[in-house]
Simulated assay, not measured.
Amino acid sequence: MTSHRPTTSVAATEDRRTSTAVVELVARVDEVDPIALEPLYDAIDPDTLDSICDTDSGFRSLSFRYAGWLVTVDSRGDGVEIALSEPASLDGSVTDAPDAESSL
């Protein structure tokens, strides 16, 4: 993992589940087939991710580690935005991020 990768984001839509969007985004950024990635459920329960990211749930933000990335899911209007960044400390060094953190 290199520290020069940019933060990348994608919006999940009604016809695309948040869990699917996370896997597709990581696969695209890492330039691998989504099947080659570790299962998302090793990081977070996909059904729970999809249900708490529902716009009617009062969801605001959630962060978790997956496949070497810090994945942040934020509420944005009618959907969510998914951003990838490398876990880093304030001095820029890569650090262990918490497995899951949420703000409801």
Rank of each mutant, 00 (worst) to 15 (best):
I35R: 15
D96V: 15
V71C: 04
R76A: 12
T95D: 13
D47P: 06
D56T: 11
R17N: 02
T8I: 14
T55M: 09
G92M: 07
S93F: 06
L40K: 00
V23Q: 13
A12W: 05
S102T: 14
A67W: 02
D33Q: 12
D47G: 14
S85V: 13
L37D: 09
R28F: 12
A36P: 01
A88P: 00
A67K: 01
V23D: 10
P34I: 14
A27D: 01
S3G: 11
L40Q: 01
T95Q: 14
P34S: 14
P98M: 12
L40W: 06
G77E: 08
E38G: 14
A21W: 05
L49C: 03
V80A: 07
S51F: 11
S9T: 10
T18H: 02
E101S: 15
E86C: 06
P98I: 00
T18S: 07
V73Q: 04
A67I: 02
D91Q: 03
D54C: 01
G92P: 03
D56G: 10
T2M: 15
D54H: 11
S57H: 14
A88M: 11
L84F: 03
D78N: 11
G68R: 07
A21E: 04
R17P: 08
D78T: 14
S102G: 15
D47K: 11
G79H: 13
D78F: 10
V10H: 05
G58S: 07
R17M: 12
D96W: 09
A88D: 06
V10T: 14
E81Q: 08
D30L: 03
A21C: 00
L62P: 09
H4M: 13
S61I: 02
L84Q: 05
T72A: 11
T55D: 11
D50H: 02
E31A: 12
V32E: 08
D54Q: 05
T13C: 08
V32Y: 08
E31I: 01
S51G: 08
L25V: 09
D56K: 05
L90D: 13
D30C: 00
L49E: 05
R5W: 09
E24N: 10
L49T: 06
V10R: 15
I82M: 04
P46L: 09
T13R: 10
D96Q: 14
T20Y: 00
D50F: 04
L62C: 15
I52L: 05
T18L: 00
P87E: 04
L37F: 04
V73W: 00
D42G: 03
